[in-house]
Design a protein around this nucleic acid. Structure first.
Lengths: 200, 200, 200, 200
DNA sequence: CATGAATGAGGTTTCATTCAT
DNA sequence: AATGAATGAAACCTCATTCAT
């Protein structure tokens, strides 16, 4: 039972930290803020985390880990479109269920410091690589013109999703709700998207 | 002529600050760093700027101001496509000519604090509004299906450009160069892009 | 028998603490360190000792108590030299058998804080008093010139022993071993030592 | 003139710190204490010193530096006794003129931490080496029996001086005053001291 | 007796900003 | 206009001690 309690304390700190990081940003969030919100003493935080940065890293790692656990690599034989849609839906699912973490990932985490930037870059690089892989398969099949720059296309797709997630997570007067995106994700048509950057 | 000298001093501080902000991020950049690089005493900085934040704000304002000065609103009668392309080229021009500021805009500035987030949101909102306006015109003309969510489409386009600019500005082993984007910008075909999110 | 077990637990904590205090010093030694080494929970320590300082005080008191228990006051009739030598040997014995405590006494304990300094001063004062007493007896007997400052002489003797014990306890590459000192202690000749500070 | 002022500020901090370190010990002395006493703001301290430890190190280095600057190596041809006495007097001079630093050297500094202990050991090792060198010369000349352990003798001499300096610096009710020691230093007779540890 | 999770006072250090020169 | 020494608020983090189990 103790381990359960310990786990819950840790989780409690994490979720409160996520809320505040999302709201105020990493630097503007003080350990005090996290203490107050999670109703925990200063020292207690340091029983579960090495330092403020460790809390942040843990949040990001959990989130990115979730993303990659839910994305499945392409099965060569199977049709590409439904696989792609399944993965899109998975990502959109995780995003919509973790608004705080999404906000952190797309805004608070950016430009934190050189070391963290590196981690973030690796994450997106992996994501882009995944998309690029799928597009390359299509290009080989002749579904995409050989003149299309698939890497650029992959960045564009990831960027488009990031921006929409960002706007949604901002919560700025509910400018945007996620429903259209969710629908879009389910019906997403690669062929259409390919046309985006056109042929070069 | 004194004012010229003063202006140049101011410019000198600004460009040095831009370089360091781009490299280390807002928080990791100290006033000391800016002093050393611009070869100016600490107190002098405060003759030209209210505080550290003021330097940053000025940089951002200059950059976003440049962007909007170069974008021209649509002339109703004229064909949409060439107008759109001219604007795209203008934006890409500014981006490629100000790598430091681009980096700051797309990464250091994000998640800085609640107040700044607001400014950034306004900037992108204005950009999105511009794009949305253009798309709406097309939709009215019947060029775009009435089922397309033009706002979502606008976010997607802005996000795609942001991500590509971000990757380029990161300078991470020169993964990306701007040339293809520049070309794409010149040949950008709205009709193709519309297909992106498909019909909903 | 419970008391035996309790006693052994107490002793266990004490000896582990002595080892760590000797190695790392009072301030650098944390309660955690003592817990880990003595395989006892944090709270348990506070069943046997009031606080960290109490552990330290106990160690010092045990050591200084041992010293004084083994030193016998001078029997007036008996010859001074053999009595002095017996006491010297006793002290050297305790020192050589408790390297950790010796280290603590001569280095970690010094300058701990104002209150503890007082205790330490009292201990050395008592030691010096003992030596001074012996020397005074000799002086009265006419064995020492009346011009000799016996208190200074006493300090010198105690200081000499302390320094040698300190160097031995430091363990720095075994610069020194205790054997010569032990031999010297057995053959120590007061008359010779008297010459140390000379006549004033 | 500025450099003079700066130097004086530094000196001011150093002397105040010495006073407090001597009184309360290194760990019990807080940066706040030093600020209050030297009437300087917290941050100012860090303009002149890297951290608290740096202040302490500087004090110790100044003191030990002074000692070695005032000790002159033996000139082979010249008589040993007057040279030895001159050096003794020099050391006693520095000690008597820097009570705070003496207290720090002989008590606060001992057992501070492993790294500092090393520095202290090196200092005393150098001092002992100096004394040992002198004694060895005498031993070669046949002035000291070949059976005498000169290293032990050297430790004893250094220890005796340390202890006397310690007792003097403690200030505990003026138990001791330095005058006798100063006199002794001037008249110090090596030949007499040699008898201290006797022959082994 | 024993535990170890929780506490929170208190320390060091940083750095944007000021102001006398 | 320019300087840079001085400031002090505010942050992070440690660790001796407590107390419910």
């Amino acid at each position: 039972m103790r381990s359960v309690k310990k786990e819950s304390r840790r989780e409690q700190i994490l979720s409160c930290a996520a809320r505040i990081f999302a709201k105020k940003g990493y630097h503007a969030t003080s350990i005090s803020d996290i203490c107050k919100r999670s109703d925990v003493a200063r020292g207690t935080i340091y029983l579960y985390f090495k330092n403020k940065r460790d809390i942040f890293d843990t949040l990001i790692k959990n989130f990115t880990g979730d993303i990659f656990r839910r994305i499945s690599v392409f099965t060569p034989g199977e049709a590409l479109q439904p696989q792609f849609n399944r993965n899109m839906c998975a990502v959109v699912d995780i995003i919509t269920q973790n608004k705080d973490l999404t906000k952190i990932m797309v805004s608070e985490a950016v430009g934190l410091d050189a070391e963290f930037d590196h981690q973030l870059i690796l994450f997106y690089a992996r994501l882009v690589e995944y998309v690029e892989g799928a597009l390359t398969m299509l290009q080989k099949n002749g579904d995409i013109s050989k003149h299309v720059n698939v890497r650029l296309l992959a960045y564009a797709l990831v960027g488009a999703i990031k921006e929409i997630a960002y706007q949604w997570a901002l919560d700025g007067g509910n400018v945007l709700d996620m429903d259209p995106l969710i629908k879009t994700a389910r019906q997403f048509n690669i062929q259409n998207f390919i046309a985006f950057t056109g042929e070069s």
